[in-house]
Amino acid sequence: MTTPARLVVLISGGGSNLAALLRACEDPGYGAEVVAVGADRPSAAGLALAEAAGVPTFVERVGVYPERTDWDAALTDQVAAHEPDLVIAAGFLKLVGPRFLAEFSGRYLNTHNSLLPAFPGIHGPKEALEYGVKLAGATLFVVDDGMDTGAIIAQVAVPVLDDDDLEALTERIKVAEREQLVHTLGRMVREGWQVQGRRVRLGPA
């Protein structure tokens, strides 16, 4: 049997995407295992999910370091210690720095609640609703040094209904986002992937 891909998941909050990944990884055929969960704050509720599943956790708070670069170095070292094949930002609300990006180039993934390049940043569903688009959605992408600007791996569209409010639209996007993350990540670890400029191709080289 092929050795499962090693995943380190970074979180800032409740960890709904983390929970979905932990469930998926219970199936040996999925092809991955979560080997560590890191957070930028000790209050992140997802840490308890990881601990309940027997997954090691760590916390690296920006505020305890004199410079942002020091935090970036510490986070890089913490993640690297677990020898991940992929690092997943699952609701992780901090921008990493050059050292982290260099260490995990092409292997650091994020999921965002809009159809990028539309509505980057932290208010994707709100801005989509205010703009009046008919399709919102979620994007899985390879993180680069920009704000939600990396090469796109997968996208899923979520219709915006006439009677949608922010809560309803956000929740439907979250459901689609989780399903996309689990499905696409599984394909990546089982079939391979290549990043070619702005294109990401799933499957063997």
Rank of each mutant, 00 (worst) to 15 (best):
A52N: 13
A80C: 06
V55A: 00
A19R: 12
E171P: 01
G137K: 05
A136I: 10
T57F: 06
R172K: 03
P84G: 02
T184N: 07
V158H: 03
G150L: 10
A50Q: 05
E179L: 13
T2G: 07
V34P: 01
G106H: 02
D144P: 04
E33V: 14
V143K: 10
G192C: 11
P42C: 04
V96N: 04
P66W: 09
R201E: 15
L93T: 09
M1V: 14
G146F: 15
F100L: 03
V64E: 15
F100D: 01
M147K: 11
K94A: 02
V34K: 00
G14H: 13
E67Q: 07
V37D: 00
D144K: 08
L95A: 11
G150W: 12
D145G: 11
M1F: 12
Q180E: 08
A36S: 03
A20H: 11
G150S: 13
G203Y: 04
L21V: 13
L115N: 05
S105N: 13
L86R: 13
R178P: 00
A74H: 06
R41K: 14
A19Q: 14
L116A: 09
P42H: 09
R198Q: 11
A20D: 08
A39S: 05
S43M: 06
V64T: 15
D163N: 14
